[in-house]
Design a protein around this nucleic acid. Structure first.
Length: 749
DNA sequence: GTGGCACCCTTTTTT
DNA sequence: AGGGTGCCAC
């Protein structure tokens, strides 16, 4: 049987599969059959070497990659594959942390804070210390803490190291260490770990508890790491410790595809690897099986501009293929239209299906215009990533209740749900409770139980009711399976009713989303592979899930839309790389923060190498950003592609140039924002004094009105913007002043 | 404590 | 454009 698969491989691939002992580094160029090699390598271990699946640890970058790999291995070796330790760093080590939680003083049901939780906790802390939240922006603070954790710098070390203080002081943020400390303490007190803690604490666990480390060193005889170029130091050290005894470690990566430095990924790991394992066996996979010569050539011509690369030559035996189509559009909307019609034409000419196309962009916000165009052309599409299902407000609300029922110390969950739906417990009361808990060195839950000593009157009784409610949820979670408990909570928390009563379209959607969540929990419970059907088990599962992991569409024939980042590891027959504009791609941030462009260029390389047959690139001369029309210039990356690979689409090559003049001209002709439509009348909120939300009035051209700032006047023009959400009215007297209709203080005379 | 309104800020990628 | 926030009225 093994002969079968070995014959399908070229010599370096075969070597990578068969050499299972000792440290190995596989440098796998784009499209070089990496997944196939990894699959066979594990199959080889299981079948030929009779290794127990429980003793193989395989770490991947996404849950999806893990699942696919498991399925493929299952196809070769059968159900043994189910027992492999396979998953992302975060999911594998959170499982291990759960079973060893007591060693670190955590309960095994600890909560995992997502970045929203982390950010709002930081916000609380900044406020708590009375610091300026303009200076200590949650995002910035979290990044700083995160990168410290990823380099295994504890808060103690952070505070005691003058270098960090000097650095922070220079950036005007001297209190960073104090925030870091408080953040860690609050997380611990809340029985919570954030994403970085899952790795940081695994390192602490293995450092401080040798017996635990020994146990896992014995268990994992073979350790494999995929997408090695995107691991950070914390992850690297975990694998190093685990593999220290057996030294059977195999890492697979491509330095040219390292695109997560912003998250702490360190290419240095590849170089360190050679130092840490002098007996290292290096295999290079350089033949590309995926793409045409044109695509491989274009990709090479881009990545060749980077200085910090290991020399590697990716080549292919495939045919020349089509040139890259460059599509030039005047606006972002037109870009969408042109992309849609290119898809339409290509489908007709080549009998492609929707699923043969992918549209890749730099930022999630670019998806809007494209979406619109595809919808109008009746092309089915699916957006991967962006705001994930689990980040939606209504889902987070329900999960907030569930989380708090499982862990009553989960401060972030409590803050979210205590007054949702409204029950008369305002911010002041919550703050008093938190302060009381802190002062008495007690749990939040204890403070809630003793609310009568902290608050009085209506607030106290509201809190008591809330506590009773939570107690019943707590029982539900302890006694029932995840689905029953969740249904109970959704119903009795009042969330479901509140959404049901909301008859707007958005309300409907939200209600359906909650139902979908419940369905998901039901599926979780009914899945025979899940032995533990409890609520905590479900939460564990869900905390590390992303949208890309929810692949259960019946109808799979859609155009895939996603960021370049989430396209890593995927391939499509035809790929559109859209928004090829300076400042957008490469990103403005990269330029202004004085970082070099190499990571952006690698990102471009990743985008190009997703394509098998044909590549399209597009840019717009004008684009809306933050509601403003901006002129754009073609990306410098377009200049960097070897011209032999590019074809300027004839239809659009007649646009005036230079591009910027044209765009400016375009904008000057469109001084009135094109999305504003003139109308004769609009409905506005009725002005004070008898103001009630439902009181509306019609405002028409010619009406006499009074404005507190601009005085009396007459309506000369009404323009509605967007989906009738905002209207602009013009005054006669105020010098043709344009005003937002939402001025409730307007008086119609 | 709640709710409306005007103003302000976003300004990258994700486990 | 869209969401968060601070202020004000009730």
């Amino acid at each position: 049987m093994e002969q079968d698969y070995l014959e399908k491989l070229n010599p370096p691939q075969r070597e990578a599969v068969v050499n299972t002992e000792g440290p190995t580094m596989i440098i796998a160029g784009a499209g070089s059959g990496k997944t196939r090699v990894l699959t066979y390598r594990i199959a080889h271990l299981l079948k030929t070497k009779n290794v127990d699946p429980f003793s193989i640890l395989s770490l991947t970058f996404t849950n999806k990659a893990a699942r696919e790999m498991r399925e493929r291995i299952e196809g070769v070796v059968g159900t043994d594959a189910r027992n492999l330790w396979m998953g992302t760093f975060h999911s594998v080590f959170s499982r291990i942390l759960r079973s060893e939680a007591d060693r670190l003083g955590y309960p095994s049901h600890f909560t995992i804070y997502d970045s929203d939780d982390s950010k709002s906790l930081i916000k609380n802390i900044v406020k708590f210390y009375g610091l300026d939240d303009k200076v200590y922006k949650p995002n910035v603070v979290l990044n700083r803490i995160s990168s410290a954790k990823n380099r295994l710098v504890s808060w103690q070390e952070y505070i005691n190291n003058p270098i960090y203080l000097a650095d922070d002081t220079e950036n005007g943020k001297p209190e960073m260490g104090k925030i870091y400390k408080e953040y860690v303490k609050r997380c611990f007190k809340a029985d919570a770990m954030d994403f970085d803690d899952l790795l940081f604490n695994t390192n602490v666990l293995f450092r401080d508890h040798i017996d635990v480390l020994n146990k896992y060193q014995q268990r994992f005889q073979y350790v494999m790491v995929d997408e090695f170029q995107d691991t950070n130091i914390s992850q690297y050290l975990i694998t190093k410790k685990l593999a220290a005894v057996r030294r059977n470690i195999c890492v697979v990566g491509d330095d040219a595809q390292s695109i997560y430095a912003f998250r702490g990924a360190d290419i240095q790991n590849i170089l360190n690897f050679e130092k840490d394992y002098p007996e290292l066996n290096i295999v290079k996979l350089e033949q590309n099986y995926r793409s045409s010569k044109t695509i491989v050539g274009a990709a090479n011509s881009i990545i060749g501009k980077n200085k910090n690369q290991l020399r590697k030559s990716v080549w292919t035996d495939n045919g020349e293929g089509d040139l890259i189509d460059l599509i030039k559009a005047t606006t972002d909307n037109e870009e969408g239209k042109l992309v849609a019609s290119a898809i339409f034409e290509s489908k007709n000419q080549n009998h492609y299906r929707n699923s043969d196309f992918a549209i890749l962009y730099r930022t999630n916000s670019q998806s809007r215009a494209l979406e619109e165009a595809l919808r109008r052309n009746n092309i089915k599409y699916k957006i991967i990533g962006g705001l994930s299902f689990y980040q939606r407000k209504e889902i987070k609300d329900v999960l907030g209740y569930i989380r708090f029922a499982v862990n009553q110390n989960d401060e972030q969950a409590l803050r979210r749900i205590i007054n949702m739906p409204k029950r008369g417990i305002g911010a002041t009361s919550v703050e008093k409770l938190v302060v009381a808990a802190t002062e008495n060195n007690a749990d939040l839950w204890t403070a809630l139980l003793n609310v009568n000593q902290i608050l009085g009157g209506r607030a106290a009784s509201a809190v008591s009711e809330f506590v009773t409610l939570i107690k019943s949820f707590k029982t539900a979670v302890e006694k029932k399976d995840a689905f029953e408990a969740a249904s109970h909570i959704a119903k009795n928390s009042g969330l479901l009713k509140e959404l049901y009563d909301d008859k707007t379209i958005e309300g409907r959607n939200r209600y359906e989303n909650v139902q979908e969540l419940l369905n998901g929990i039901k599926e979780f419970v009914e899945n025979p592979e899940n032995e533990d059907k409890s609520m905590p088990a479900f939460l564990q599962e869900v905390a590390l899930l992303t949208d890309a992991d929810n692949e259960k569409d019946e109808d799979k024939d859609y155009v895939t839309m996603m960021t370049i980042h989430s396209s890593k590891g995927l391939e499509f027959k035809n790929v559109f790389v859209v928004g090829m504009e300076e400042d957008l791609f490469p990103s403005q941030m990269m330029i202004s923060s004085r970082q070099d462009l190499e990571e952006e260029r690698r990102l471009f390389y990743v985008a190009i190498t997703r394509a098998e047959k044909k590549l399209y690139m597009s840019y717009a001369l004008t684009r809306y950003r933050f509601g403003r029309l901006k002129t754009c210039e073609p990306s410098r990356f377009l200049e960097e592609i070897d011209k032999d690979y590019l074809k300027i689409n004839q239809k659009f090559s007649s646009s005036p140039s230079p591009a910027n003049d044209y765009a400016k001209n375009f904008i000057s002709k469109n001084t009135v924002q094109p999305t504003r439509k003139p109308v004769n009348q609009a409905v506005i909120h009725k002005p004070s004094p008898n103001f009630k939300p439902s009181n509306t009035a019609k405002l028409a051209v010619g009406d006499k009105i009074e404005h507190p700032k601009f005085g009396f006047g007459e309506v000369t023009k009404i323009e509605v913007q967007g989906a009738n959400k905002k209207a602009h009215i013009s005054f006669e007297k105020a010098g043709d002043k344009t005003l937002l209709l939402s001025f409730a203080k307007l008086r119609i005379l």
